[in-house]
């Protein structure tokens, strides 16, 4: 589960921070462990110009948020409709134990609120 890439994103998370005056701001909590994550996005036209995450999280939450934001930055907002659980797990690259899938998918849970 703790592959080099995940640990590397945990240690040096990409897009960590908060966008001032964001177009969208969403937050989620994992009631089981108290982890909480906030995503802020700057959207111009239909392009995600910038996306950042903040909050507290374990290695999986942090790496997942880091990889996801890296993937989304600069893309069209339409991509938000295509991102699902399978995609995120693939992005993390492999075996996540059942008890930890909730951690891996926490940032996606926040993203899904945007679609609403």
């Amino acid at each position: 589960m703790y592959k080099e890439e995940i640990l590397e994103h945990f240690k040096n998370p990409r897009n960590k921070g908060v966008i001032e005056k964001p177009s969208v701001r969403v937050s989620v909590k994992n009631a089981l462990c108290g982890d909480a994550i906030t995503l802020t996005l700057a959207i111009r036209g239909d392009k995600i110009e910038d996306i950042k995450f903040s909050g507290i999280g374990c290695a999986l939450v942090t790496a997942s948020a880091s990889l996801l934001t890296e993937h989304l930055k600069g893309k069209s907002v339409k991509i938000l409709n295509d991102i699902n659980d399978t995609f995120v797990l693939k992005l993390l690259g492999g075996e996540i134990t059942p008890a930890r899938i909730g951690c891996a998918l926490l940032p996606l849970k926040a993203l899904k609120q945007i679609k609403k």
Partner: peptide
């Protein structure tokens, strides 16, 4: 430097079962 959930996962891979989280005591945490 290691989140309690990650620690519990690593320990589990060695057969060691501990609990991680707020243990239903959020105000205390």
């Amino acid at each position: 430097g290691v989140h309690p959930h990650d620690l519990a996962s690593v320990l589990d891979s060695y057969g060691i079962a501990i609990r991680s989280g707020h243990h239903c005591a959020m105000p205390l945490h």
